[in-house]
Design a protein around this nucleic acid. Structure first.
Ligand SMILES: [Mg+2]
Length: 470
DNA sequence: CCCATCACG
DNA sequence: ACGTACGTGATGGGG
């Protein structure tokens, strides 16, 4: 491995990813046991402490078995991220401008319709003013949700839309306003002279070890609605290139199979079955070809819910079924995937009794909330613990893939480069002539980043926009 | 500055 | 009686 300079921020994060505010003052106190304020820690003083900090944190990393993940993954990822950020990604600004004009016109129409239905003009974007219109003036009811008043969120408005035409219009308005203000009208302001946007990937924010993306966030670009997909079409490769998008299929559920060794889950992934249909056959006790689309949809929600520690309440409200039914589905899931049930319990007990959990690459995180006597805090932390090894190991895996893929691209003298990472997906800008070779390279490095009990599979698409590459 | 909301995996 | 699915970031309202 290359000789890399010490990185205090990454070292401190690897040692304690829970620390939300790792200021120099806190780090110096924590590792050198010296109490000094940020002001007292002058550059000159910090310079004198630097060597000692490196020595102490290095020893700590090695003692805790964290040196490898720190050095070979986190530190090795730094230049890879630097290249991604520096490359940026091209936007079709003219197209976004056209889209903006069209959608602003629609927004204006919606606005007038909303005022008409409300009988007055008000700030639609103010939840407070909207509450007054919906719940006082129109007397609509949900009885549900309060914090600082009645909630007007999408769940509530969707329910209210069955009783009055206004909430549906508000939902349409919100959807357009969100996409316009966050993406369509904002991204064009952030392009460089070549029409490319450059995000910043933060390596020390998400306690699971995931990356986060800011300024602009390129990890939450819309895709779930028609208009959202139009925004994805604005992400385009430079002249002479195509986009190659490669994403892991159900990586967290495969990790669930790997860690639990549940026979049903292993079998499903080893035979490359449709996992949601497989779960449906198990919880509804019927053959795969008899599973209805509705049953598959329920099974899909259960599959994803389980890795978040979802309970019957959430499942019932999301699927519009009774608590009793929801509980029966979850019970059936854990009965048929018995080793998953055992694994989830072991995550809780290990996190509580050993104090921490470990990922596939040896990343660690503690769960202080499991010492709480407050049931809500305890249960919330238990859910974090149940999700952590899966989400965090998935983050480990794509990081390894990025490091070795980047190296292979450079070693092979390719022009292709990674331009985006979205948790389980990589997007590359690929000269047309390199398409075939780089497709193989990307798949190879992603699928073989680690070896699991089940295959890691990657789906790849190529296209003239991010949307088209999916 | 916090809250509510909603965009993504 | 309470609270109820993990991890993020950006926006607009309102104090
Ligand atoms: Mg995927």
């Amino acid at each position: 491995m290359a000789n890399r300079p010490f990185d205090l921020e990454l070292a401190a994060f690897t040692l304690d990813p829970n620390d939300r505010e790792p200021s120099m003052s806190r780090i110096v106190a924590k590792y050198l046991d010296i109490e000094l304020s940020e002001e007292e820690l002058t550059p000159a003083l910090l310079a004198t402490l630097a060597g000692k900090l490196e020595e102490v944190l290095t020893k700590e990393l090695k003692d805790k078995g964290l040196w490898t993940v720190y050095h070979d993954t986190e530190l090795a990822l730094v230049p890879v991220l630097a290249r991604i950020e520096s490359a940026g990604v091209q936007l079709d600004v003219a197209y976004l401008k056209t889209l903006s004009t069209k959608l602003h016109a629609e927004l204006l129409t919606l606005e007038e319709e909303i005022y008409g239905l409300s009988g007055e003009r008000f700030n639609i974007q103010s939840p407070k003013q909207l509450q007054t219109i919906l719940f006082e003036k129109l007397g609509l009811t949900t009885g549900k949700k309060t914090k600082t008043g009645h909630s007007t969120n999408v769940q509530v408005l969707t329910e209210l839309a069955n009783h009055h035409p206004l909430p549906g219009k508000i939902l349409e308005y919100r959807h357009l306003a969100k996409l316009l203000s966050t993406y369509i009208d904002t991204l064009p302001k952030q392009v460089d002279s070549k029409g490319r946007v450059h995000t910043t990937y933060n390596q020390t924010i998400a306690s699971t070890g995931r990356l986060s993306s800011t300024d602009p966030n390129l990890q939450n670009i819309p895709i779930r609605t028609d208009i959202g997909r139009k925004i994805r079409q604005a992400f385009i490769p430079m002249e002479g290139c195509v986009f190659l998008a490669a994403d892991y299929s159900q990586i967290e559920l495969r990790l669930l199979a790997h860690f639990s060794k549940d026979p049903n889950l292993l079998e499903a992934f080893r035979t490359n079955e449709d996992i949601h249909t497989r779960t449906a056959t198990l919880i509804f006790d019927k053959a795969a070809d008899l599973v209805t689309p509705d049953e598959r949809r329920i099974a899909k929600t259960v599959n994803f819910g389980v890795v978040y520690g979802m309970g019957p309440f959430k499942l019932a409200t999301d699927l519009h079924i009774s608590m009793k039914e929801a509980k029966s589905f979850i019970d059936a899931y854990f009965a048929r995937y018995a080793e998953v049930s055992a694994l989830m319990q072991s995550f809780e007990t290990t996190a509580r009794d050993e104090g921490y959990l470990t990922t596939i690459l040896g990343r660690k995180k503690t769960f202080p909330g499991l010492s709480s006597k407050n049931r809500v805090v305890y249960e919330a932390t238990k859910r974090e613990a149940m999700n952590y090894p899966l989400q965090s190991s998935a983050a480990d895996i794509i990081k390894r893939a990025m490091i070795t893929l980047d190296e292979a691209l450079r070693e092979g003298r390719y022009t292709s480069r990674i331009v985006l990472q979205v948790h389980d997906e990589l997007v590359l800008e690929v000269p047309r002539a390199e398409t075939e070779a780089v497709t193989h390279l990307v798949v190879e490095h992603m699928q073989n980043a680690v070896q699991l009990e089940v295959p890691l599979t990657v789906s790849v698409g190529i296209g003239d926009s991010w949307m088209a590459a999916h």
